[in-house]
Design a protein around this nucleic acid. Sequence first.
DNA 1: TCATTTTTTGACGGATCGTCAAGAAGTCAC
DNA 2: GTGACTTCTTGACGATCCGTCAAAAAATGA
Lengths: 242, 242
Amino acid sequence: MTLSPKQQEIRDREELLLDVAQRMLLERGYEELRMDKVAEAIGVSKGTVYQHFGSRDDLLAAVAARSAETRAALFERAQEFEGSPRERMGAVEAAAEVFFALFPHHEQAERLVRAAHLSPGISAERIATLETSTQRCFGVATRIATEAVASGDLPLREGQSVEQLCVGLWNLYQGAFLMRDLEKFMSDPAVDDAIGTLQRNARVFLDGFGWRPLSTEVDYTAARERTLTELFAAEAQAAGLL
Amino acid sequence: MTLSPKQQEIRDREELLLDVAQRMLLERGYEELRMDKVAEAIGVSKGTVYQHFGSRDDLLAAVAARSAETRAALFERAQEFEGSPRERMGAVEAAAEVFFALFPHHEQAERLVRAAHLSPGISAERIATLETSTQRCFGVATRIATEAVASGDLPLREGQSVEQLCVGLWNLYQGAFLMRDLEKFMSDPAVDDAIGTLQRNARVFLDGFGWRPLSTEVDYTAARERTLTELFAAEAQAAGLL
DNA sequence: TCATTTTTTGACGGATCGTCAAGAAGTCAC
DNA sequence: GTGACTTCTTGACGATCCGTCAAAAAATGA
């Protein structure tokens, strides 16, 4: 089943619209995301934009859903890293860093979508995509941690679970995103270098679970470097992490 | 210097307006926060609301600033807890839990304010209040951790700092707030019980730093109970934590 | 070539923000 | 209590932006 030229044009345009909206979101924020401006930016009329996205919120959700899918893909790629479970979890964390640097708009968009109390203007399909993408990320982390439990590297204590660990890492990661907004107000090395702090704190956190080998026994810096060069060369380059 | 009856009325009205705005924010979200409705809810006209708040964003910022001050006060109260440094940090965490339960609107409001890219409509004073309140919270945590370092309970390693630890706790705490939005989509014990997970993960995190006594050596549940009953009886009751 | 279907357009209705001049209410000296 | 002066309140108004829709334009296919 091939696409007619017109259908192809429409498909391409949707990507263009998302690119424009994403850029506006980053540069000007949600308040300044105007449907007229988005349309104008790619030389169509507003009505045409509404052919693609049911509402302004839907456009926002589409931007968030697209980057969320990219994130899930990065996480799944990180899963392929060759090494101990803990090193592989480190690779996932590196994937998070790459995404963090490449899609600075994402958290704001996702938060706004979730804050938009299931607005009727947002297509259910987009919400589902966003949701599935988040679950894929959790899935990757859960699998790695489960493996570590099985191999004896991760000795969970009474009342602890693999899910709790994954939620904790996710919280640290999300919190790091939020710190970026704080940078404008506070200046502190630990706040300023959000990525570095995230890295260090994730290590402390996993050490707290007793996930061997502990970061006091092994230097995980090398594994991180290897992850970036082997798995995310292009992306890390673009993000300025290499 | 006393206030004339009229001035007192105006002062009281400002609190009323904040109450109304806070409730609307919680029930309907930011999109549905209408200046007309806020005015109508307390029986004044829109122009009067603009006498208090320069813009819609300013009203939002005022709501956030007010609850941020409450949070700072709770944190400072927690600091008074009698016990080991680590127990006192646990008390701060309990204060965070209380706030978490009592002001569910707060994070959404604060995030929106910070996302509003220093909108010119927001009074600088309110931003300063919000900022100062956050720093007061960090100040409490920093003092306790610094004390723990001094007393030898908290053995920081090369490259680690008290600030890094505080940022980590803050991230876990902020992340827990965000999980609340996820609850609608994911159902998992660790996601569902955001507060419980935050508690457990904060302990793991501090254990990771080797902050003695470790949670494997001492049961901190008792200290938490004592914090809630001794310091936050009324609030914990209202929040349903007791 | 032309009838039919699909897509695009931009003017329009509706909603809300923030303003401001006119009017209402409060204050204060006497 | 009165009246002049100050402060506060009001709601209509201009401006902006969202989302719609009938008419126009473009694409399709026989």
